[in-house]
């Protein structure tokens, strides 16, 4: 299985360091900031989440900047299963999709039948997208069969919903494992592969994203199927988002520069994107007080 060949950590990191020096200015920057907004899965995954909080978030998702109607909606709102119904209600009629984490996020430490029933439930409650976690314990103990079987079962339970498979790369220990897990997840039917739950450090890094994008590219070459990518956790500034888009652009190219194939899982990123857009449009540095907090 050459597709799961080795990686070299230092050289991967050197590559992203070089790509990070790209200087994105002017119209290119404007385009990227706007694209990043449309690619954002606006996320809240806290024990203290309430109906009120996710309602606000959902409104923010539809109209991120009330003062500027030219700002597009984000891609999705991502919440815990408990809040899918609320989000679904607010987002009805908008282009923003409902995403639910599932499979006993973030640890995934539950029997498969519970993961399957949770998945069925969030889809029934209106989730367009399901963000599942892989069983890292099974993966690290070498039980790849179990990892694949679970993804396939959840895939089936998710029906037509878009299935994003979280690898929790911060727990996998090496880029070799990241690449292997990416391949397993894609082979098992993932529509997206996603770096992290956001509950484990390190979460999304540029280097891990590059390794996953390269796996996506190779999977496409082998099978013809295009799988999307979602870095999540730790991307909070426009400057970071642009670096991610550069890595995406120079690894998978323009075919992937779309919310259909690339998402940012983030919460505070959105306002920084909006501030940067406003700064570019007005030529004035911005204050957080002028941007709504959801």
């Amino acid at each position: 299985m050459r597709s799961v060949g080795p990686t070299d950590e230092v050289m991967v990191e050197q590559r992203v360091a070089t790509l990070s020096t790209r200087s994105i200015k002017g119209e290119s920057k404007k385009w990227a900031l706007r694209a990043a907004v449309t690619m954002t899965d606006l996320t809240t995954l806290e024990g203290m989440d309430t109906v009120g909080k996710v309602r606000q978030l959902s409104h923010k998702a539809i109209r991120p900047d009330p003062t500027d109607p030219s700002i597009p909606s984000v891609a999705a709102v991502c919440v815990y299963p408990n809040l899918v119904g609320v989000v679904s209600e607010v987002l009805r009629g908008s282009t923003v999709r409902v995403a639910a984490v599932s499979t006993y996020f973030p640890s995934g430490q539950a029997p498969l039948d519970m993961k399957v029933s949770e998945t069925r439930r969030v889809v029934a409650d209106g989730a367009d997208e399901v963000d599942m976690v892989i069983d890292r314990g099974a993966f690290l103990s070498g039980d790849y069969r179990k990892v694949v079987d679970e993804i396939e079962a959840v895939r089936e339970a998710a029906g037509d919903a878009c299935l994003k498979v979280i690898l929790e790369t911060g727990e996998l220990g090496s880029y070799d494992n990241v690449r292997k897990a990416s391949m397993l997840a894609m082979a098992a039917g993932a529509d997206f592969i996603k770096t992290s739950t956001g509950k484990v450090q390190p979460a999304a890094t540029l280097a891990v994203t590059l390794v996953m994008l390269e796996a996506i590219r190779d999977f496409r070459a082998m099978t013809g199927r295009a799988v999307g990518m979602k870095p999540a956790g730790g991307i909070s500034t426009a400057k970071q988002a642009i670096k991610w888009l550069v890595v995406l652009n120079e690894t998978l190219g323009s075919d992937w520069m779309t919310p259909d194939r690339f998402r940012f899982g983030a919460s505070s990123l959105l306002n920084d994107l909006l501030m940067q857009i406003k700064w570019l449009n007005t030529g004035r540095y911005q204050s957080a007080d002028y941007f709504t907090k959801a």
């Binding site: 070299d8 230092v10 050289m11 220990g173 880029y175």
Partner: peptide, 10 residues
């Protein structure tokens, strides 16, 4: 003198 380089990675 031969100099050999190799990255140290995981």
């Amino acid at each position: 003198i031969k100099t050999v380089w190799h990255p140290k990675g995981r």
